[in-house]
Write a protein that binds this DNA or RNA. Structure first.
Length: 279
DNA sequence: CTCCAGGTTCCGG
DNA sequence: CCGGAACATGGA
């Protein structure tokens, strides 16, 4: 496998691939193997220099969002201790620019699941219904297309440990495959309209829509509120007196974290999930 | 065994 | 608008 250098961008590769944005990257040797869309990719960082397999340079550059102004983004974080702790913990993490369908579908399968479970589901779906691309003499599986999933029965997806999420993923896949819903059209809508369009899909509520917007639709202000973020906001930004209702949290997150709120959210999420102590 | 996980949907105050 | 309950599965 021939490797090509992509220079030494500001990037924490392992942190980025392992922070609960994408769920399919696997350790191999000194690097990582996975699919970016339909391209099989190997990524490795040595002394700050980023390497990728020959032919995957453009896919990797786009996916890793090396064009995001990370210095400006990290400088835009609020100066409060909570945000600054998360920044110190996650510096160099980037918000991946994932394929739209893949981001949407993956987070439909994520509800009430631990990160490790989401990864299991992603791998099972890829192996059974995705396409195999050979890299270094081994298969790398792409995420199944809407068409591939639309042709299945709910029972096929239940066998992938999807549980009640199977019906939602199938119904959404069929709406996209049939062109009843066009993700590329949603991609040009303003944030609120795009969010509402996504929320019309089965299994897509406010949180999943915001994940899709942030990770697949380049909306860097989208601020998904999951159980971890809710915990951080309630216990570290709100006082005991302030009631952390959904509306109060939504308003706070939309106004406190600036134009790159989605980045702040991802840093807060990862930091909380890995360092939170009970009690 | 019990508890909880990157929630959504529906239903009654 | 808010809080509760149902919904599947598997790791801690």
């Amino acid at each position: 496998m021939k490797l090509v250098s992509l220079g030494s961008p500001a990037l924490a590769l392992e942190l980025t691939l392992n922070s609960g944005q994408a769920f399919h990257w696997l350790r191999e040797g000194h690097g990582w193997v996975g699919a970016i869309g339909e391209t099989a990719v190997y990524l490795e960082q040595r002394a700050g220099e980023l390497f990728v397999n020959l032919g995957a340079e453009l896919a990797a550059t786009n996916y890793l969002a090396l064009d995001h102004p990370l210095g400006e983004i990290e400088a835009s974080f609020p100066k409060d201790p909570v945000s600054q702790e998360a920044l110190a913990f996650c510096r160099g993490m980037r918000i991946l620019r994932q394929p739209k369908w893949e981001a949407l579908a993956t987070f439909i399968t994520s509800s009430m699941k631990q990160v490790s479970h989401i990864a299991q589901i992603s791998h099972t779906l890829r192996q059974r219904f995705g396409s195999a691309h050979v890299l270094n003499h081994k298969p790398v599986y792409s995420y199944p297309t809407p068409e591939a999933l639309a042709a299945l029965q709910e029972a096929d997806l239940r066998k992938c440990a999807l549980g009640y999420r199977a019906a939602n993923l199938l119904a959404t896949a069929r709406k996209v495959a049939s062109k009843e819903v066009d993700l590329d059209s949603i991609a040009v809508l303003p944030d609120p309209e795009a969010q509402m369009a996504l929320r019309a899909l089965p299994g897509v509520g406010e949180k999943v829509a915001n994940c899709a917007l942030l990770f697949g639709f380049e909306r860097l202000k989208a601020f998904p509120v999951d159980v971890w973020i809710e915990r951080v906001i309630r216990e570290r930004y709100f006082t005991k007196r302030q009631k952390a209702t959904p509306a109060a949290i939504r308003t706070f997150c939309a106004t406190n974290f600036g134009p790159y709120g989605g980045y702040a959210q991802q840093y807060l999420f990862h930091h909380a999930r890995l360092t939170w102590k009970k009690g």
